[in-house]
Write a protein that binds this DNA or RNA. Sequence first.
DNA 1: ATCCTGTTCAACCAATAGGTTGAATACAGG
DNA 2: CCTGTATTCAACCTATTGGTTGAACAGGAT
Lengths: 121, 121
Amino acid sequence: MPADPLSRVFSALADPTRRDMVARLAVADATVNELAAPYDVTLQAVSKHLKVLEEAGLVTRGREAQRRPVHLEAEVFDLMTKWIDRYRREAEERYRRLDGVLRAMPDDTEASPTRREGARP
Amino acid sequence: MPADPLSRVFSALADPTRRDMVARLAVADATVNELAAPYDVTLQAVSKHLKVLEEAGLVTRGREAQRRPVHLEAEVFDLMTKWIDRYRREAEERYRRLDGVLRAMPDDTEASPTRREGARP
DNA sequence: ATCCTGTTCAACCAATAGGTTGAATACAGG
DNA sequence: CCTGTATTCAACCTATTGGTTGAACAGGAT
C-alpha cells in the first residue's frame, strides 16, 4: 500500500461517490451516518470510502462520544493543482512556441498536418 | 465503461507511469516506442496505458506511416481544476467564516472542540 | 448491568486494472 | 512479393476495488 501521495489523492477522487462526499464536506463536517444517508449503499461501504479519503489525506476524523465526525482537509488539493498546473503550463508554452514557428513560416511550407486551420488557397 | 469524464481523468492520472507519460508529452509529442523506452514493462502495457489516457481525453493519436504519434491535449485538465477549485474555495470560505465567528465570540464560549488553540485560562 | 446508537472489523464475492505472452495488422522499403 | 518495424488485439493471470453480510466494539442513556 505504499502508493505515492499523488496517486492516492487522484485515485481517491476517481470515484463519484467519494467526490460527492468531498463536495458535501466542503460545506460542513458530517458524521458517517449523515454522509451515508443519500447513497444507496451500506454504511460499511461508506466507511470504506472514508478510509480511502483519509489515507489520501483528504479528510481527518474527530472523536466526539461515539460519533467520528469527518472534516475536509483542503490543503492536499494543492498537491494536485501544483502537478496539473505545471504540465498544463509546459504544454501551453510549447504550443505557443510551435504556433510562433508556424506563423513565421512561408505560407505553405506546412511542416506536418498538425492542428492548423485555414491556409487560404 | 460509461464512467463519467471526471472519473476517467482522475483515474487516468492515478497511475505514476501514466503521469510520467503525460509529463513527458507536455514537452514533446512521442511515438509509443519512444514513450515505452524508459519503463520496465512491455510495449503492450504501454499501449494499454495510452488507451486509458486517450479515453480520458488527455491525449490524441496521429497517424504517420506506421507510427501513431501521441499528442497531449491539455484542455481536459480544466475539468479537474474547475472541480478542485470549486470545492477548495467553498471549504476555504467556510473556514474563513468559522474563523470570524470564533474570533467574535466571548473568550471561552467555545461552541465545540473544533481546531482552536490557546484559550488562555 | 443492559441496551441502543454509531462505527468499524472480517470474510467473502464479482468486476476491474495492470501486467504478461503470442498472434495479428499496417505500412515503407528492397 | 517478402521483410522489418510499429503498434494493437486476444487470452490469460493476479491483485485491488467496491460492494455485501454478520459480528464486534465504544460509549451514552436507562
